[in-house]
Design a binder for these strands. Structure first.
Lengths: 245, 245
DNA sequence: TAGGGCGTTTCACGATGTGGAACAGCCTGC
DNA sequence: GCAGGCTGTTCCACATCGTGAAACGCCCTA
């Protein structure tokens, strides 16, 4: 284990997570490292081009080169590439916000999305994570797993307590989702929306991803909701089996 | 300078650039490092979750966690966020492929794009770079710089020789672009297309980015081209001044 | 069965990263 | 206006940690 590399990646992660440039002191405290150590790591990353320093405030921030790293990966990601056209078509048919997610150790990771251009509250979630039971997509995936109890319990613990999730209730919801063939959730990760989601099976049949459609709660009812569900399920059928990675 | 970190980032970069999982031997050769050194770095990255190993072929590849790093940065990138709606609108009006690029040391970096869903030859370029004079966007930017000669010369040297660019000719092209207010290029980075581009001024007035529209050469003529140019220039006007980073 | 290529492991060496401490610049608030 | 506490930055003796040559064991090919 190269500890220097681990420390370096911790620094990069902290900078990437932060919305604004960070002070050296903030970084050292957050990471529990030595001031001079963080300073030297930052200088190394600056030489390599991954980090820049605001000359006025002397605060540090991750540069676009850090973004390039990941962009190369996602552009060759076969799951995203194969699903993207279907996402776009779903968006056009329903005029709602659509998303593609994959499960990553008890969480869902938002891979891609599409939304109405003039959507009021669209925040691109690509690259963010959420506890599985906190999202419809995660629930769709869990509902397809043989024995989700442990994962559900861990996932509930990772949700904010205000969500008020209870194990027995969530397990019931998952049972319903399994029967219905889709999961539906209001007031989770996107509080203002009702989100419906379906899992996409992987090579072995186990759920490897999920597609979801979200809209304002008041709009996602009656005929419109029925139509949205039709499009969602039909698209999942069209996509069929996906390969992860 | 933390050499261990530098070596580590070189490994990550190589994996991210590669379209497919790489063998250990290929990495060591490509990077000119010791076999055991690369191996230990890879193991470190695997423990951190940035790299995974195909259990069958024992080849290594960068995981989605590497993508998450950069995704956090681009989601807060103010340039991209402010221009994205304009890009989308341009795409809908022209039905062609549109792009947003920024200059990064003698190259242009593709930040964002939008294309027709059923576009035949759409390759998402986000995160890739190209020599400035090899793209219309780069030429639009260069044409707004006070004395681009040196940058142009360096940039020509970075282009594939088959392109056949000559300094005097390119400088003339730039002069024309400066007069017209937009750059136009056929047979550059996207060989099948004609691309037209405008620079977006930054805080000081110096060009800080460029927007571009590209389409098949045979379609980008006459009335349609005139319309595309109208949309392009009007959008640049709407966007006005942008702030880099 | 012998050979070569591969990923992996080992280990003694010493280069390299470490972190405490001291420095210098800036602002804040007595 | 001066003292004090923040910064970010630099320095350096120490020993930790990464280094790389070599050896290992595996799988495939000849």
């Amino acid at each position: 284990m190269d500890t220097t590399v681990a420390k370096g990646m911790a620094v990069l992660e902290a900078l990437a997570r932060a919305k604004r440039p960070l002070r050296l002191a903030a970084l050292t405290e957050q990471l529990g490292l030595q001031k001079s150590n963080v300073h030297r790591l930052l200088n190394t990353f600056m030489e390599l081009g991954y980090v820049q320093q605001d000359p006025e405030t002397s605060r540090y921030f991750a540069s676009l080169k850090t973004w390039e790293l990941g962009a190369g990966i996602i552009s060759t990601n076969s799951l995203r590439r194969s699903v993207a056209p279907h996402l776009q078509a779903m968006q056009e048919k329903t005029r709602e916000t659509v998303m593609l997610t994959v499960p990553v150790d008890d969480e869902v990771l938002f891979l891609d999305g599409a939304a109405q251009v003039r959507a009021l509250r669209y925040v691109p979630l690509n690259g963010t994570r959420a506890p599985m039971v906190f999202t419809a997509a995660g629930r769709a995936i869990l509902s397809r797993r043989p024995d989700p109890r442990d994962a559900v319990a861990r996932s509930i613990a990772a949700c904010p307590p205000e969500a008020g999730f209870v194990l027995s209730q969530v397990l019931e919801d998952l049972e319903k989702a399994r029967r219905d063939g889709y999961a539906s959730l209001v007031g989770g990760f996107t509080p203002w929306a009702r989100v419906v989601a379906v899992a996409l099976p992987g090579p072995g049949g186990a759920p490897a991803a999920a597609i979801a459609i979200s809209g304002p709660e008041e709009r996602m009812t009656g005929d419109h909701l029925a139509e949205v569900l039709d499009v969602l399920l039909a698209t999942a059928d069209e996509i069929g089996e996906v390969s992860p990675t």
